[in-house]
Structure formats: C-alpha cells, structure tokens
Nucleic acid binder design. Structure first.
Length: 291
DNA sequence: ACCGCACCCTGAGCGC
DNA sequence: TGCGCTCAGGGTGCGG
C-alpha cells in the first residue's frame, strides 16, 4: 500500500526513466474507474510531449510536460510504476524469480492490468503503470489549469509541523488517527505510518483530535516526519528490490513496531499490541504506552 | 461544517 | 483439491 515513502521511492527510481524523454505514443487499457481523463483523450494529449520534471505532493506524482500541461498519477493500493527490464536478478533461482513482482522481472510484458504503456522516441525502455485493483488514478491537467484534487491537499507530510497539526485538530471530534490520514490536513500519511507515528509519539489513535495537546502535536508531527524519512531511506515498505523480492518483506517491514503486529509484545513495554477498527481501517497500538 | 460509512476492485487466504 | 466467501485498503461522495 503505497504511502508517501513508497511514492517518493518510486519517484526517485522512475525520474531518470521519464524526465528529458519525449513520448512517441501511449498505450492504454479500456475506459475504467482508473482514468479520470478518458484514455483516448489521454493518448492524444501525451503523444509528442517531453517530460520536463517529476514532482510529488503527498501520495501524488505530478509530471510536468513541455506544453505546460501536467500529468497526475496516483498509485492507489496496488499501483506500480516502473521501466521495462529494470533489474538483473540472475542471482536468484528460477522459482524465486517467478515470485518477483513485475517490475523486477526482466521479461515483463504488459498484461491486462497494465493501464499505461509509455513508448518514447529514443531507444530507451518503455515505462509501465500497472494497477491490479484500479484504485490508482491518472489525470491530465491542462496548461495553466488547476486541479481541485491537488489544490485541496494539505501540507506534505514531510513538512508537517506541530503548529499546523494543533490548529487543524482544534474543535474536531474525529479520532486523531482519522484526522492524521485526512489528505486535506496532511498529504501522504496512510494507514501504516499513521499507526507507526502515533506509537512513536505515544498517543492513542482513538483520542478525539480536539483533545490532543500542543506538546503531543509536536511529538506527533516529529514522529510523522521521522518515520517517513526513515522509510524512504530503507526503500519503503511495499517497494520491492532484489534482496527482498516479496512486497510484504520490504525493508521497512523489519522496522514496524505495531502495524500488523496484533498480539505481539510492544517493543517498548512488552504489553500485547492491540488491534481495533477505526474509520474502517485496521489500527494497531500499545494500550499501555499510548494514552 | 462535520462525521461515519458505502463504494470502487480483485487477489489472497480461509473454511468447508 | 476446489469452490465460494470474506477481507484488505485510499479516496470520494453521500446521507444524516
């Protein structure tokens, strides 16, 4: 489940394969929930354009094009953005290779879930956007136009301050965790890092947002930034590489302290980690450390 | 204005 | 072994 760190890692990996290159053509799947811009329109708008930059805000990637338009990409739950034939996995057995995600498979061919295939004028590799569940999104934004989706996002989670969080929580009765995951307040925090940051800050996810103190907001903001920077360093928790081919074994997996550890001892005090449902999302915390 | 919940989708994992 | 059910989750939008 890509959150800010996974999107940032994706951005850094895909940037060299996109920026400075001119699109010869775009292939798409049929119209669906995935396409905020209809695929036919998208193909016409993108053909011939050169990608000038690739930015990120929260969980959104935004490609700047040479005609002033922008292409917005969201990975949703299962989105994968990767260049063809990126990696060499010769060291792994055939069985291990077969279990690799497509981005690590040298011979990957676009399948029914590959909704975008960028082909370029140069001889370099194609770039694929694959998304099995279609919770991802693609949107073409006209030159000079605003996107309501982007303009209503709050500050990027890496820039979150205690002051901003404190102001946003006043007079709010929602559970703190739900507010932390509201993209209009802070952009980039998802389920995993919300649980991890709140554990680090020792604040219970169910607390009414309005009851959270100034000092706690400072701790939470610091933990959000710290946890996300650390996850970027370790390559994110669902972005795979050759050493840890299985998404669930991503590097950050080893650093999780509460997420998906229900019943296991809290790393700080040993009490069993509790799992509840909050805002229809699995929520994990230590009942002793987090008050 | 705010809050809670249904919905979009499909593979994994489980029980029978 | 195989079928069918349930669950997971980001973000939007609706009804209360």
């Amino acid at each position: 489940m890509p959150e800010l760190p996974e999107v940032e890692v994706t951005r850094r990996r895909i940037e060299p394969a996109l920026v400075g290159r001119t699109v010869r053509g775009l292939r798409t799947t049929a119209p669906s929930y995935f396409f905020l811009t209809p695929p036919g329109v998208l193909r016409r708008r993108i053909a011939g354009r050169t990608v000038e930059r690739l930015d990120r805000h929260g969980k959104y990637l935004i490609a700047g094009l040479d005609d002033g338009a922008r292409l917005m990409l969201h990975l949703g739950m299962t989105g994968q953005l990767f260049p063809a034939g990126t990696s060499s996995v010769r060291l792994l057995s055939a069985t291990a290779r077969a279990s690799l995600p497509p981005e690590a498979q040298p011979g990957f061919r676009p399948d029914a879930h590959t909704h975008l295939v960028f082909r370029f004028k140069d001889e370099g590799p194609e770039v694929f956007f694959r998304d099995v569940r279609k919770f991802g999104k693609v949107l073409w934004i006209a030159p000079g136009a605003d996107s309501e989706r982007l303009s209503r996002l709050g500050c990027d989670a890496l820039e979150l301050t205690g002051e901003h969080l404190f102001a946003a929580t006043r007079r709010r009765t929602v559970a703190l965790k739900n507010l932390l995951m509201a993209q209009a307040v802070v952009a980039g925090v998802g389920n995993i890092y919300a649980d991890e940051a709140l554990f680090g800050a020792r604040v219970r996810p169910t607390r009414r947002a309005g009851k959270v103190t100034r000092a706690e907001c400072e701790r939470i903001a610091r933990e959000v930034r710290r946890v996300m920077l650390r996850a970027i360093e370790t390559g994110g928790s669902s972005i795979s590489d050759y050493v840890a081919p299985d998404g669930s074994d991503g590097a950050y997996q080893d650093e999780r302290r509460v997420y998906a550890r229900a019943g296991e001892p809290c790393p700080a005090c040993g009490a069993p980690v509790k799992k509840i449902v909050l805002g229809a999302r699995g929520t994990h915390y230590c009942p002793r450390c987090q008050r």
